[in-house]
Simulated assay, not measured.
Amino acid sequence: MATGATAAAIVLAGGSGTRFGSGHNKVYLPLAGRSVIAWSINTLLAIPEVGPLVLVVRPSDRELAEWVLDREVEHGGVELVHGGSTRQESELCGLRHLASRIDTDEVDIVLIHDGARPLLSQNLASAVVHAARVSGGAIPGLPRHDLVQVSPDGQQLAGAAPGHLITVQTPQGFRAGPLLAAYEQAAREDFVGTDTASCVERFTDLRTHWIAGEPANFKITYTHDLLVAERVLADLGRHQLS
């Protein structure tokens, strides 16, 4: 690792409001005085381990994203990039934007975070960076004990779910060089993974380490999730912009 190498963060803001029931991109909806997307951006920018932050947006949302960055983000320097038609294409757009800094080892770790998870903590993001540096890759998640199997026809219960299962969260963090190479290989082979880790697993020999996630780091998916997030922010004493 070169002297001064640092982590970079890619925040994805390309989601829609389909399940949320909104005609607008849910990451720009208001949450306790600022947009959903602004909360995690501010958290990541406050972490000493994180240098460049790339916000990947839909071209149609660019003006809205610029408005949020100008008025709701507490530090400058966020780099805006247009994403693709899928999550994986958008991740690759962000990685290609960082490619020159990855090639020179200026960036050694990349965090990829879903902008619809506004309650990311600094401690969790720092833990992902540390674990990724040690093992090559890290994913936060919460254990699940409430799942069962069903029969192939879906009509009957078939016992407890096998093994140890977790609910995966973001940010997911990986060594930057292998991550970029994996995404480029996936693009050449038209491979579409379920998340960042699936591309890494298929095209690298990195070991991905699971670390404990946080209950508050949930995804805004439905309308009531915003109400829950507001209550959590109030309980944590995190205040809206003045």
Rank of each mutant, 00 (worst) to 15 (best):
M1K: 14
G4S: 06
A8N: 00
L12C: 02
A13R: 04
S16V: 04
F20R: 08
F20V: 09
S22V: 06
S22L: 03
G23E: 07
G33Y: 01
S35N: 10
S35I: 08
T43A: 11
I47A: 13
V54C: 04
S60G: 10
R62Y: 04
E63C: 11
W67T: 15
V68T: 13
L69G: 03
L69H: 02
L69M: 06
E72G: 03
V73K: 09
G77Y: 10
V78T: 07
H82Y: 13
G83F: 02
R87Q: 14
S90L: 03
L95C: 01
L98D: 00
I102T: 00
D103H: 13
I112K: 00
D114F: 01
A116S: 12
L119T: 03
S121I: 13
Q122W: 11
L124F: 05
H130N: 14
G136D: 00
G136P: 00
Q156E: 15
L157S: 12
Q169C: 08
T170M: 07
Q172A: 14
G173Q: 06
G173H: 06
F174Y: 09
A176L: 06
G177R: 15
A181M: 09
A182I: 10
Q185P: 01
R188G: 05
E189A: 11
F191W: 10
D195F: 04
T196Y: 01
R202P: 03
H209F: 12
H209L: 14
A212M: 14
D225A: 08
L226I: 09
E230D: 12
L233R: 02
L236R: 15
S242N: 10
